[in-house]
Design a protein around this nucleic acid. Structure first.
Lengths: 123, 123
DNA sequence: TGTAGTGTTATATACGACTATAACACCACG
DNA sequence: CGTGGTGTTATAGTCGTATATAACACTACA
């Protein structure tokens, strides 16, 4: 499986890794009680330093979303999804969305532009 | 005028400076033919290193949006706004918006949530 | 001519993110 | 018990961002 050409943005890798795990939790790919992919595995898969993965996982521990059991792995806490959903919702609406809305207005983009933006390119 | 506490995000300052100038161009605050605020002034105003401002302005020169006249200043090129608008539109729709849309769906946010997000907080 | 404004370049320093390499600590299981 | 999986920590080096300080090059204008 090819997993190259990630990390294209200007965001730190550990931040992107954290976000990716969060996305998997929200999408139900990782359920509560499940173990996270091991630090070493992720590091190898994505050709990234183990410490970088650790840093990403640490932030999840700090948020109280996962728990580390030495010698076993990192496991998703009960209630993680609900808490995460609420927190991310609020953060998105209060911090990201206002900027996005401003950009949209500045560029003069119509709802129509935004809706037809996924599939076919500009006709 | 207080201008403290900027640069709160995780984006490099020179990137944020560049984006701020671009926003002013799109909003019509800076018109074509106008000079950009001088490197030294911006550096002093925002309490930032002149080289950091230079780096931001350099990227605008590289994009062909402004032109540097030694001893005079940096001036906005003719046609800059139109070209900028088109470029930013495309970049936003192709690179940013898909991710944003994904996040919105993942969080289960409704159009209603997004519309009422500016003024009054959650009722 | 000189002065004050502009962009431009040079040197050195600091810090954070990321990497490479290695070792340590713990647990399940045969 | 050992082996192989897990998380964890340590040391050291690279690179990009940003800093401080200083000097250089050019232009308008009095």
């Amino acid at each position: 499986m090819k997993v190259d050409r990630e990390w294209s943005d200007g965001l730190p890798i550990y931040r992107q890794l954290r976000d990716r795990v969060v996305a998997m939790m929200l999408d139900g790919i990782l359920k509560e009680g499940d173990p996270l992919p091991s630090v070493r595995n992720v590091a190898a898969e994505y050709r990234v330093n183990p410490l970088t993965v650790m840093k990403a996982y640490e932030s999840l521990v700090d948020e109280g979303l996962v728990e580390a059991r030495r010698g076993l792995g990192m496991f998703i806490n009960a209630g993680a999804r609900a808490r995460l959903l609420e927190g991310e919702k609020q953060r998105f609406l209060e911090e990201e969305w206002p900027k996005i809305r401003e950009t949209i207005e500045r560029l003069g983009l119509t709802p129509d532009d935004l809706l037809r933006a996924r599939r076919g390119k500009k006709p």
